[in-house]
Amino acid sequence: MKITDQEVLHVAGLSRLKLDEHELKRFLRELNAIVDYMDMLAQIDTAGVPETVHATMLTRALRQDIPERSQERAAALANAPSQREGKIVVPRVIE
């Protein structure tokens, strides 16, 4: 297996996902199978081939610097799980 337990846990941490024992085992197996399959890409000679990041050829999409009405504060916070005096509340951010 190419991907280790440690890597799965590292990736889960970066993704902010908590895995239980069962999930860890399962993802370890599945990710390895998929990544093994993806490794077929290594065979292809891509020297000098540009990358395709967009499926369009557009090279400029700009907006004028003209203000538009911002949403009402109530609308900004309408879906917020926790709010106080116009601000969204979260557990303490430690710096």
Partner: peptide, 25 residues
Amino acid sequence: MLGTYVLSAGYYDAYYKKASQVRTL
């Protein structure tokens, strides 16, 4: 998880970049 893996340090070139090139092909 898979997406995080292919973008993470050390794997970007082998997966994301490579796939973007094959996409061109």
